[in-house]
Structure formats: structure tokens, C-alpha cells
Simulated scan of single mutants.
Amino acid sequence: MLAIKNLEAGYGKVKVLHGTKIDVPKDQVITLIGSTGAGKTTIMRAITGMLKPTGGEVTLGGEKIDGYDSHKIARLGLAHSPEGRRVFATMMSVTDKVLLGAFPRFTGSRPKGDIKNDLEKFREMFPRLQERRNQLAKTLSGGEQQMLAMARAVMLNPEIILLDEPSKGLVPILVEEVFKIISNLKSQGVTMLLVEQFAAALNGANYGYVLENGKLATHRPAAKLKDDLAVKAAYLGGAVAIQ
């Protein structure tokens, strides 16, 4: 599905990624954990076209996408729920923001499908947003904005979703709600790459990678990785487990 090989990227003269390799097979949840500054968000930006890699390659469904613009990558079916939510402070309602995620489907650059039915599914999956569907997006709490960013990504009807630290900065009760949504997506067979700081996010994932200083420190099936004493010592805590 998604393959990252020997990926190198950075900002100006500062090199952040040093030959990173990650595989995300179809219908699986892959978790990437690492401390602040390890390069996790840089990987996500390099995958989605927000940052041009300086080496290596990224393929989606066998098509080489590194160097593509973000809008072209989205049309191929890769959705991104970014760190910091980025729901933008415009005069748009929650429902309008969610439908914005389906824009490539309205224009015909993605298979349209039944958008109305998908919107109903969104309302079931994100009941808190359903309650606030007519509010301006900028009036939502931080946790609600995180859910909105996820809902917007889901409305692309993507082949794969990238979730960049969805629990960051949230109170525990909202972290739990966000991970229930991720569990729901997993149960529907949605392919995901989940970036988090905490080893607890490995629970329920298929495979896990640990990133340190822009390089992979270790990787293995998530069930084994979460029991690694060194991983536990460095990253245990914080995130609620995927069920």
C-alpha cells in the first residue's frame, strides 16, 4: 500500500531524516512512535508532499509519489490529519469543514461514491461533532478540532489515512474518545499510519516502528514491540490503547 524507502528530508541545511524505511500494508494499522524532535512529523510531511524529500522514495499502491504536490497525492487516496489540527479559522461550519474533505470527490478527481451516505456515517462515528454541526469550526475545543481534522480526512474516502499525534495536548477523556474513533476505523478495515509519542498506542496495531534522531531504532510486530523493556522505559504512558 504505502512504502517509504531510505527517506531523507530536512529543512534548509538541517537534515532530519537519515534513510528511514517504513511499510504500511493494506488493511493494517502501523504505529510510529518517538520522542519530540525525533522526526515523526517530518516523515508525515515528506509523505504528503508538504516537504520535498532530498533522498529515497515514497510509493502509494506501487506509484512513486515523492515530489508530487499535496493535492495530487490526496487525489490518489492518501488523507492526512496533521499535527496541530489545521482546521483554519474561517467562517465555515463544522459540516462545511467535513465536506471540504470530500472536495476531490465532488470534482471527480477521486471516485465520488455516495457522499450523502458517508456523511451519515460521519455523524454516527463523530457524535460530538454531530451535536456541533452548525457551529463555526473555530469555536470548537482543541479535542473537537482534532476530531474534525480526522473527520475531514475520512470524508476523502481514502485508501490510507495518516494520523499525526491525534492525542497531543488533549485531556484524558478526549484522548479516549479519539482512540475509540481510531478503533472504529480499524474495525472497518481502514489502513492507517499512526504517529504518537507513547508506546501505549501500539496496543491493537499490527506493526510498530520506533524513530530516534531521524533514524529507525527498532521495528517489529506491535505485540512484541510494546513488551520491549527499553521501549517501555522510554515511551510508556499517555495515549489510550487502540482496541
Rank of each mutant, 00 (worst) to 15 (best):
R105N: 02
Y209R: 08
I182N: 06
A200K: 15
P104H: 03
R110N: 08
A205M: 14
Y209K: 08
P111W: 13
N203D: 13
V178H: 07
L194A: 04
R133F: 04
P111V: 12
R128W: 03
L216G: 08
I181D: 01
E120V: 02
Q188M: 10
F198D: 14
R152Y: 07
E165W: 13
G189E: 05
T218L: 14
L129P: 07
A151M: 09
K186N: 00
F126C: 00
Q135T: 05
L136Y: 06
M147Q: 11
E144F: 01
A137C: 13
E131N: 02
I161T: 05
M155K: 03
N206I: 07
M147N: 03
V190T: 13
L185N: 12
I173W: 04
E196Y: 13
F103Y: 13
G208E: 08
N134T: 11
E165K: 09
A151H: 05
I160N: 07
R220H: 04
K168V: 15
I173T: 14
L136R: 07
A149Q: 08
K168L: 15
A217C: 06
A222E: 05
M192T: 10
L185K: 11
K180R: 15
A199F: 05
V195L: 02
L136T: 06
V190F: 10
V154N: 00
F126I: 01
N157P: 07
I115Y: 09
G108Y: 11
R132T: 01
R220Y: 10
G143I: 04
I181V: 15
K180G: 12
L119R: 01
L170E: 04
N184Y: 14
R152I: 00
G204P: 13
Q188V: 00
L170R: 01
R110D: 07
F103L: 10
G142M: 14
R132H: 08
A201N: 05
L193C: 11
L140A: 00
F179P: 01
A223E: 12
L162W: 10
Y207K: 06
L148R: 03
Q146D: 03
F103E: 06
V210T: 14
E120D: 11
L156R: 06
A151S: 13
E159P: 06
L148G: 03
P111T: 12
I160S: 08
Q146P: 05
E120C: 01
E176G: 09
R152N: 01
